[in-house]
Design a protein around this nucleic acid. Structure first.
Length: 598
RNA sequence: GGGGUCGUAGCGUAGCGGUUUAACGCGCCUGCCUGUCACGCAGGAGAUCGAGAGUUCAAAUCUCUUCGGCCCCGCCA
């Protein structure tokens, strides 16, 4: 093969009018090709941008011949002179539009098959196709941009935490299985037949041990693994900004996280976040938004009108109240003129979410309309509108059911309608801290399980409840919420052996289970464990939201699809029995499946 | 495990109240074209309509099954 000699003196996007007259060497991909017969224009693209190269058959026949053969996505080397474009042929829509490269030497470094989809055009493409050819998909400038942003965000985080005295420490990815968390990904140990490591769900216990070790302030941008079903915001492996600090109270953690996020937003988006973030008790979030991660970019808050309907005889409402339930609803601003068809469709959605029915009161220009006018009377209807703060032109919708169930249904309906009717400002970033989570949630079986995780300290004033009424105890736990996403979650940890043991007991673990699974942690607490606490933030979610993407797959270079499959590499795959034998594993699948074919 | 939605040339879509050659745009190939930048013009190739079964004189279109994508619920200490 012919020896290719290429050089690179600058990148495509860097060329500008100040280099006029300079000879330069560029490498890149053919973005677009415009063959006018006598003259060929190639747009050459690299990470930095696009520049137009001109090939003339008379002045440089050699280069022209190369350009004649070049096609879209060929990798090229060109040498030429930076020239101001002829008067009137400038292209103001690209940064390098003032100039062009008059090429006198060109080589094709590598040809390309016709790509399965266009890099130059920014059309939506089926995601499975995109992921199969992810290396082409990522060439699309808009897609690459998200990774530039991710890099900037990570750099800001590291700089900020370093400036605050945090130590970046790596912790094991291969560790112990923790049965009470998410499902683990398991890794067989060849040298310990029958034994497995688990891929870390988070560095939780290690960072606490680092506090016992006196590391004081730790952080890590850590990969975590959880074998649960996937979502737009959930991948089996994801990245967490993991932080832990000693001798701190909740406010110290808030201050660090707020400072860090403010720095990130300032440096990456030029946006100044108002500090401190609002705080809201978990109970209040559930009451007002029907969610523990409320999207506070828009209103439509839930109101409780149970009190107004205490004496009503109307069927569904009466029944719900008698059963100890509630009547709640929210106002849709300007919704009074909705057609019957539209309100029917909203009621359908509510039913799909589990509501028994949805009632409407429309506050029209001249009259108040409601299907319940007869049942409740005009006085009562007006009272409800007044109480809900609904004005002329608004639509109030409400339902009756058991309280906790009702607010979750309405909370979801609120979100769905908000999205559907474009009520959520896209360019807004609404942060808040949700605090005072319950320590435990009741399982279906009636047992208790940790709402956050079992290493979370109860609020000091609620410690007595551990004996009298554990379900009532609140946790020193907090979530940082952004635009309705749980961005991060943390807590002040337990640092005393007796309290930690009590929590495990309340969760129904036997002494033996406690010793076996967490003995090392309890032991550590007895050797001078400092009070400590921390937080972990989802880097993927942060990047997705900051880049305006709907899915974290857009900010992960090689993500898996919803079936946890990587369409590019074909993982996961069957493993040949011979290989499994070394690991002492017998697969419970048909033998023919186990042939190692991808 | 459950619900919703979508599968038609390489890509994006139309056709889906039953019929003849499955249409359009982009891309691709060939030819023409010396200032284009979504270059233009002319011609051409390319699809067993995701798969299987059924109903019918006739199925991309209707029915059932199945596979796959996306979104959601459950799940995610």
């Amino acid at each position: 093969m012919e020896e290719i000699s290429f050089k690179r003196s600058c990148s495509c996007g860097e060329v500008n009018i100040s280099r006029r007259g300079e000879e330069i060497d560029l490498c890149g991909w053919v973005h677009r090709r415009r063959d006018l017969g006598g003259v060929i224009f190639l747009d050459l693209r690299d990470r930095s941008g696009i520049v137009q190269a001109v090939f003339n058959p008379e002045s440089q026949p050699g280069a022209f011949t190369v350009a004649d053969k070049a096609r879209i996505e060929y990798v090229m080397y060109i040498h030429g002179v930076v020239a101001k474009r002829p008067e009137g042929s400038e292209n103001p829509s690209i940064p390098t539009g003032e100039i062009e490269i008059i090429v006198d030497k060109a080589e094709i470094l590598n040809p390309s098959l016709t790509p399965p989809f266009s890099v130059a055009e920014d059309k939506p493409i089926d995601e499975n196709v995109r992921l199969k050819y992810r290396y082409i998909d990522l060439r699309r400038p808009k897609n690459m941009e998200a990774f530039r942003m991710r890099h900037k965000i990570a750099m800001s985080i590291r700089k900020f935490l370093d400036s605050r005295g945090f130590l970046d420490v790596e912790t094991p990815m291969m560790t112990r299985s923790t049965p009470e968390g998410a499902r683990d990904y398991l890794v067989p140990s060849r040298v310990n037949p029958g034994k497995f490591y688990a891929l870390a769900q988070s560095p939780q216990l290690f960072k606490q041990l680092l506090m016992v070790a006196g590391f004081d302030r730790y952080y890590q941008i850590a990969r975590c693994f959880r074998d649960e079903d996937l979502r737009a915001d959930r991948q089996p492996e994801f990245t967490q900004i993991d932080i832990e600090m000693s001798f701190v109270k909740r406010e110290d953690i808030f201050e660090v996280v707020e400072g860090m996020l403010a720095t990130v937003f300032h440096e990456s988006l030029g946006i100044e976040l108002p500090l401190p973030f609002p705080r809201m008790a978990h109970a209040e979030a559930m009451e007002r938004y029907g969610s523990d991660k409320p999207d506070t970019r828009f209103g439509m808050e839930l109101v409780d009108i149970t009190g107004l309907l205490e004496s009503t005889e109307f069927g569904i409402i009466r029944t719900a109240i008698d059963k100890g339930g509630a009547v709640k609803g929210f106002t849709f601003k300007g919704g009074a003129n909705f057609s019957r068809k539209e309100t029917d469709s909203i009621a359908e959605k509510a039913k799909a979410l589990g509501a028994q029915g949805l009632f409407f009161i429309s506050h029209g220009e001249n009259e108040v309309k409601s299907s319940l006018l007869k049942h409740l009377g005009e006085e009562k209807i007006k009272e409800i509108l007044e109480f809900a703060g609904a004005e002329k032109g608004d639509l109030f919708m409400f339902a009756a059911d058991a309280g906790t169930r009702l607010r979750e249904i309405l909370g979801r309906l609120r979100l769905e309608l908000g999205h559907l009717h474009g009520l959520i400002p896209e360019d807004k970033f609404s942060f808040l801290w949700v605090i005072d989570f319950p320590l435990f949630v009741k399982e279906e079986s009636g047992g208790l399980t940790a709402e956050h995780h079992p290493f979370t300290s109860p609020l000091p004033e609620d410690i007595p409840y551990l004996e009298s009424d554990p379900a009532r105890a609140r946790a020193a736990a907090y979530d940082v919420v952004l635009n309705g996403y749980e961005l991060g979650s943390g807590s002040i940890r337990i640092h005393r052996r007796d309290v930690q043991e009590r929590i495990f007991e309340l969760m129904g673990l036997t002494d033996e289970q406690i010793r076996d699974r967490f003995g090392f942690l309890l032991d550590a607490f007895e050797y001078g464990a400092p009070p400590h606490g921390g937080v972990a933030l989802g880097l993927d979610r942060l990047c997705a939201i900051m880049s305006g993407k709907d899915s974290i797959r857009e900010v992960v270079a090689f993500p898996k699809n919803l079936s946890a499959v990587c369409p590019l590499t074909g993982s996961p795959m069957y493993i040949e029995q011979e290989h499994l034998d070394i690991l002492h594993i017998k697969a419970d699948v048909p033998v023919e499946a186990n042939t190692g074919k991808i």
